[in-house]
Design a protein around this nucleic acid. Structure first.
Lengths: 251, 251
DNA sequence: AAGTGGTCTAGACCACTAG
DNA sequence: TAGTGGTCTAGACCACTTC
């Protein structure tokens, strides 16, 4: 089979790196949707006129980046934001002594607005661009722990309503992916300790002025496109923000 | 050349995974020291009677894990904890608006002690085992920002004195590596917001009770051996704890 | 049995470094 | 020029899934 857009062996960049382009293209443009299999390695090798080894190396990189998932004997699939993956990659609040648990989400507010300066900068959109603002309260094992303030660029989420948002039966990132084709690949987080404002304190059940952990997070998709801006206030009296560094598994 | 301890193709585990064992062994036992080259890929292939491709895959994994560093045309080297690598991997406090800067370290206290319950658990040593306790004040661009309380298992750092500790001309982790052969590969961090104690407040120049970011960190070496336990109190009024998730680079 | 990804090989050629 | 790692190939065989 001829190549769709032939790769160039002498282009300076290695073939397995060039191959990433068409693969990401295929995913973000809907040729293969989340949860669906991409073509077999042999088929991709034939399509782009490279060897299977080169295809494997390209796929390896996307698997490492969380974009694809391999299943031996079955095929290679576009990663889907199921609850487990979501918890593992992007949710870092854990009970101090017990195991990680799933949060229960209650939406306190959902409204359309214009971007303020900070949101505009975080989302790389013009000031006063249309955005959707959401406030969520996350409860862990019956205790309210996290107060989220989410800002979404309205342009990327056409028709998103409070009903759609709250009636999802999965994680928020899964909603982004399944309904809008937006895959969250990376997050950038900045943390600091702040005194609880009166409103936060009431909702989280702590004294005003007592320390909260504030997380400011930008979630980005393909090509470093910011797709969500979120400020979380966390009551860390019984929970920690948990984190490992040093990529390798236990050597 | 015959293999030192031959790998077993039919052992269930792939050869490139088995090869990780002897390579880590060689590093942690001093066959190759930090900054030194390991044998060429061809030599390793001959020594362990596998193909170069298999050696490459094993080395790839260790490079990804930060244990080895490749330099085209020169060789593959045992990673060294230079200041740059240290900053990049294990130091996450950044000025809110400006770029990352190097901290200036002042040692406030250095003494020998016995492990309390928390340190014993973190370091996986018996209670009352001998430890070294160090308090450091880290200053960024002239402002005191971080108060570190470090606990080391004395057994792993024989002869370590305040003089040696403070007269190093490089990072702390570099000292661990160059003097004691201890390579910090991973850290496990738990963060929470806490009110500043009076003593901390005085040193960091904030009001008592104002929010500080507290980081509890275990640094581990080969075979998940904990080698350092550290509690840091961070004044986040002008600095953030910064963090990216989602392993891949920008696709 | 057929088809998938997983491992492994043997070798070619290229790009970079050093003497 | 010789030696290193970096890329790429073509194919063998294995382990797993599905029918």
């Amino acid at each position: 089979m001829p190549s769709r857009s032939p790769l160039d062996a002498g282009a300076g960049r290695p073939l397995y790196e060039q191959l990433r382009g068409p693969l990401l293209e295929g995913i973000s443009q809907g040729r293969w949707k989340a949860g669906e299999p991409i073509p077999t390695e042999a088929a991709l090798a034939a399509e782009y006129a490279v060897s299977i080894g080169t295809v494997r190396k390209a796929v390896d990189a996307l698997v490492a980046g969380g974009v694809l998932v391999r299943m031996q004997g079955k095929g290679t699939f576009v990663a889907s934001h199921n609850a487990r993956r979501m918890m593992f990659h992007f949710f870092h609040i854990v009970p101090r002594e017990r195991d990680k648990t799933y949060p229960e989400v209650r939406t306190l507010e959902f409204r359309r607005d214009r971007a303020d300066a900070e949101a505009a900068r975080a989302l790389a959109i013009p000031r006063d661009e249309r955005v959707i603002r959401i406030r969520n309260l996350l409860t862990l094992a019956g205790t309210p722990v996290i107060l989220d303030h989410i800002t979404l660029p309205a342009e990327l989420f056409p028709g998103l309503s409070e009903k759609i948002f709250t009636s999802r039966d999965n994680t928020i990132y899964h909603l982004y992916q399944s309904r809008y084709g937006i895959n969250v690949l990376r997050t950038d987080e900045r943390l600091r300790a702040v005194p609880a404002a009166a409103a936060q304190a009431g909702i989280l059940g702590v004294a005003p002025g007592s320390p909260l952990l504030e997380i400011r997070r930008v979630a980005v998709s393909f090509r470093d496109r910011p797709v969500e801006w979120r400020i979380s206030a966390v009551n860390t009296s019984a929970h920690d923000y948990h984190n490992r560094f040093g990529k390798g598994e236990a050597p």
